[in-house]
Nucleic acid binder design. Sequence first.
RNA 1: GCGCCUGUCGUCAAGCGGUUAAGACCUCGGAUUGUGGUUCCGAUAUGCAUGGGUUCGAAUCCCAUCAGGCGCCCCA
Length: 414
Amino acid sequence: MAKIINVIKGTKDILPQDVEQWHILESKALEIFSKYGYKEIRTPIFEATELFARGVGDTTDIVNKEMYTFEKSERSLTLRPENTAGVVRSYIENGMARLSAPVKLWYKGPMFRYERPQAGRQRQFHQVGVEMFGIKNATADAEVILLAVNYLKSLGLNDLEVELNSLGCPTCREAYKAKIKEVLKPEFDNLCEDCQNRYEKNPLRLLDCKVESCKAIFEKPEIQKVIQSDFICEECAAHFAELKTYLDKLNVKYTINKLLVRGLDYYNRTVFEIKSNNLGSQNAVCGGGRYDSLVRNLGGEDTPAVGWAMGMERLNSLLPVPELELLDGYIVSTSPVEAFELAEDLRDKGFKVEFDLANKKFTKQLEKASKVAKRALILGEDEIKAGTVAVKNLSTGEQVSFPRNQLPQVLAQG
RNA sequence: GCGCCUGUCGUCAAGCGGUUAAGACCUCGGAUUGUGGUUCCGAUAUGCAUGGGUUCGAAUCCCAUCAGGCGCCCCA
């Protein structure tokens, strides 16, 4: 036997028995997002590396160590690690700024990140996401969050926790960063190595460090005071307050998490995550926020935007496994020609029908029927002569013969 | 990139230095030449991730490699 070739580490086959779940995620996405006026967009799976370097941010782990990058014809290309940058690129390139705002887009598809696989984390995984361009008001943030919650509800996921925070605008955030650095300066030598790096690169990400010694430092009153302080400027605070009002009125439950810092550089003001307790350590099913400077950073007009993405594998692991659908009928026959004709006739009328292509013995065919179909459609010598089909209900055992032309009505009865 | 754990049939597994490598499910065949899902019988690993080593003897112990899982980090 030749050597077997395996799937690549961190990738998975989506097998026939699991595909129904994916259909549910996708069809609900289309259904719910359409109600809010979102149109689907499909962008390429690879893009210029620079798009992600500039878009996602070159201080992020995603760009620094997790990208699948390759060279072709002296161009550096990268398999998309997320899709916001790609959608923004397309928005700019296709002149969507000329469309009447808001421009609402949604997408689904595979993303690629070179990370160590574990529960809820693969190297090729799938996201559904939405992006809304052109509205700076908190109504946009609210609609997008509401949309996420309603999509999850439509999947039967009602009790997930929404966590919310505001990062402020670049101006007030810089001031906040400076304050954090200042108050942590005396402790610098006691911080873990990662935190010492983050101190310079991105002080905001210091705050949720899980190393015990760092946690202890952050517990100190004078440091907590800075962390918990409402550093954001008046305008940002008003925006955040407005958002909270909408969510309250719309009965969206949320908790404020001051430590919530999305790891992507482009976020400002609103950031949020939706988490589940049933997912192990990778517990976020949804993450998103506002990114008002990304369009400009990628060469477009200054355009406010909000969006989020959900991990489809994580969603699936929260959903019950749907039962395999049974055929409407399985034809049991000794005559392949007759079986073919009947099968095609019924398929043409919209029914799901199979028969035994190997022409096995009668009992074997019936056994197969009982496994894959609601009923056996028995089409033997006698029935062929009489122009009938014996319909056997495989759960009750009940069997009645009908003229062939009545079959569609009989099958239609469920 | 770091830490811990695990690799025995398509799947779930027993075995813990000497066995003929249990068992169950699935699949296939038969009992049953037109009546299944219940039952009964039978088939299916010269093989224990791979390569070395220790031993009279290795699926069992040791080392390496590979693969998988989980955690850190990060994120969906």
